[in-house]
Amino acid sequence: MAAPETAPLDPMAPLVARVTRRHHDAPEVFTLELEPEDPGALAPFAPGQFNMLTVFGVGEVPISFSGDPVDQNRLVHTIRAVGPVSGALTELEPGAAVGLRGPFGVGWPMAEAEGKDVVVVAGGLGLAPLRPALYRLFAERERYGKIVLLYGTRSPDDILFRRELEAWRGRLDAEVEVTVDHAMAAWHGNVGVVTTLIPRCSFDPAQTVALVCGPEVMMRFAIAALMDAGVAADDIYLSMERNMKCAVGFCGHCQFGPVFVCRDGPVFPYARLRGLLALKEL
């Protein structure tokens, strides 16, 4: 095999993108819209994939796409300020430069879900990686069976993407439930753990694809509830989170048993991770 004439793309070198918009969603949570300086250099992203975002001089973190996949020129990322890099990202003002590598990873099984009922279970910030899938589900509504969205978060103040949730909830062709762990009396919505909503929803478990994203404990309980409802392990997909440094399988950090979360995931059918999720400190 002849060596390529031109230098191959360095998977570790970021492109430069600019912040075009910054929106405060919830305490510590911000959504950034980015525009690459050279839009042609990026492959289109699929729901569930992620980018590696760099604040120059600070560092790099993996952040899922949270925007509409129809609009490929607007790269939308919803970020919680939890560390030095994510903190610095959320402080960037429009015009600021960001390093960007991606898109990486295996996303949600949008094609496999066609013709089936789709149950989306999101917890906390886990709604962000699911939002591109939800945009797609509603944009191509006729391709799917029933759509159920169950979203749980800590408190009413922490609810993300209220505008979209309200719009989807207003639809007659979807079942959308939002629940919070606790609320002041002024909140008239549901209070309780999101997994308890699963048995109350109507879908055909034999013809269902479930998309789950949230804290790992919440996902474990959601999977249990989905399987109790009769959904097969093959049809339950979850998005995993692990430390990622390279996003291309070189650095080793994101290993979860046999898989590299960055390359083989972050979205996995539960059947592939069954047995691993219950192990401590794997």
């Binding site: 910030l125 978060t153 800590r154 762990d181 753990v193 997994t195 308890t196 404990v217």
Partner: peptide
């Protein structure tokens, strides 16, 4: 039992930082 499970999850405050 279900309420006990739910209470445990709420106690963990899994969505919190």
């Amino acid at each position: 039992i279900e309420r006990l499970h739910a209470t445990r999850l709420q106690m963990l405050d899994v969505y919190g930082t």
